[in-house]
């Protein structure tokens, strides 16, 4: 293959792997937004908790698969607790207040982690070694394949969950029309609780998948949360396919921007593209067209 194409392939590999992580975080935003119109700014902290708790369990001598399950469980408990103890109690407050509560919860989780687990960086072992895989001259780490594979599996699982299970359909119904959902006997509070639990799960998985590549520490969620949010906006807030496409697109734009234009403006290039898209399509690529109810 000509060197130019190898270079392009390398940029795409690198962009897709980062993008898959952004997509998982963006999906977390979408789930909670759908169920409640809350933008959960503690989503990045779920990512952080996933990585940090896995590290703690590993350092206690627990095997990697068990440590991962444990970390996902702990993060889900954190997500459920956030809904139960903070969001549900302020149920009657307006959405902006609830969003501010999630900002506070994020700061709280960061502080709690830094006090209990320390401020150090920690590396997780790669799931299946560090030998790069050569594909047509471009290289890919086995961990990147894990990221892409697990993200794809989660997307399929979520699709099945929302379209073929009663609970999933109930969540969808509640997100489309909470009042009508309540009338047919769906407990909207439980739906909200479930969506926080699911979002925490997605965040934790993203955090665990990326930790072997980037290392993890108590502030790792800030930037990943922000990138995930940008991806969710790009794809259209509340849209599942939008979150995935938005995440992958953001990763690829960043990588191509750094590779072909300038690494100094890597983030700026990504944000300019997002602004451009929003200018032409204010609801994002896959956003629902808003309808005013009278």
């Amino acid at each position: 293959m000509p060197p130019v194409l190898v270079e392009l392939l390398q940029f795409l590999f690198s962009g897709l792997a980062s993008g898959a992580i952004y997509a998982l975080v963006a999906l977390g935003f979408a789930l909670i937004y759908n169920a409640s119109h809350i933008i959960n700014f503690a989503q990045g902290e779920f990512v952080m908790l996933g990585g940090m708790v896995t590290w703690v369990l590993l350092s206690q001598g627990i095997d990697l698969p068990l440590a991962i399950l444990g970390a996902v469980a702990v993060t889900m408990v954190a997500g459920l607790a956030l809904e139960k103890l903070a969001i549900e109690r302020a149920r009657d407050a307006n959405v902006v207040t609830l969003i501010i509560i999630t900002v506070g919860a994020g700061i709280f989780l960061r502080g709690l982690t830094s006090v209990t687990l320390g401020k150090d960086l920690h590396a997780l072992p790669a799931f299946s070694g560090n030998a790069p895989i050569d594909i047509a001259g471009a290289t890919l780490m086995p961990q990147s394949l894990w990221i892409l594979g697990v993200t794809a599996a989660i997307v399929v699982a979520l699709h099945v969950f929302f379209h073929y299970t009663v609970v999933g359909k109930a969540i969808l119904a509640a997100s489309h029309n909470p009042l009508a959902a309540r009338l047919v006997g769906i407990n909207v509070n439980v739906v909200l609780l479930l969506s926080f639990g699911l979002s925490a799960l997605l965040g934790a998985v993203a955090g665990i998948l990326i930790a072997p590549i980037t290392a993890t520490h108590f502030e790792v969620g800030i930037m990943l949360g922000l990138k995930g949010f940008a991806a969710a906006i790009l794809g259209g807030l509340g849209s599942g396919p939008g979150a995935i496409v938005g995440g992958l697109l953001l990763g690829v734009i960043e990588s191509l921007g750094a590779g072909y234009i300038s690494s100094d403006y890597k983030d700026a290039i990504a944000f300019v593209v997002i602004l451009g898209v929003l200018f032409l399509m204010p609801r994002g690529l896959f956003g629902k067209r808003g309808t005013e109810r009278v």
Binding site: Q10, S18, S263, K266
Partner: peptide, 20 residues
């Protein structure tokens, strides 16, 4: 002469450029 932000998670693009 390439750069990366302190919280970046991947520097493959910059390094590919340097390598070439």
């Amino acid at each position: 002469d390439e750069t990366y932000a302190p919280s970046d998670t991947d520097m493959v693009a910059q390094l590919t450029k340097i390598k070439n």
